[in-house]
């Protein structure tokens, strides 16, 4: 077997500093989309967010515009300011709702 060439490596000190700082920076393990919120009732048909691909029952399955149980990611704080004609409040909501007849 050929001897594998020695790879350079970063020093333990440099690694510890970077990893320690990174750990502190990521301390609040902001899971999904921390600057976004799920907004119900604002997605146009077929445009609801999901990534399961074809042959699944998920992606782009909203059958009508502004479906009350279909959600979309929007920038945080903007959901309840987005117009939704089917919503009882007239605006997007942070939870699924029963559509009013329009």
């Amino acid at each position: 077997m050929n001897k594998t060439p020695t790879l350079t490596t970063l020093s333990a000190t440099a690694l510890a500093l970077a990893l320690g700082t990174a750990l502190a920076l990521s301390a609040a393990p902001a899971s999904a989309a921390d600057d976004k919120e799920k907004c119900y009732g604002v997605a146009l048909k077929g445009k609801n967010d999901c990534a399961a691909g074809p042959g699944t029952t998920c992606a782009g399955t909203a059958k009508a515009d502004h479906q009350g149980n279909a959600w979309k990611y929007v920038p945080k704080g903007s959901c309840e300011k987005t117009a939704s004609p089917t919503s009882p409040t007239g605006l997007g909501q942070l939870a699924a709702f029963k559509e009013k007849k329009s």
Binding site: L7, T8, T9, L10, S11, A12, A14, L15, L17, A18, T21, A22, L25
Partner: peptide, 18 residues
């Protein structure tokens, strides 16, 4: 970890490990 960090640093001048 050490090799990967060194390799990335040589691959991109403005590499920021943190």
């Amino acid at each position: 970890f050490g090799e990967a960090a060194a390799l990335a640093a040589s691959a991109a001048a403005e590499f920021d490990l943190t």
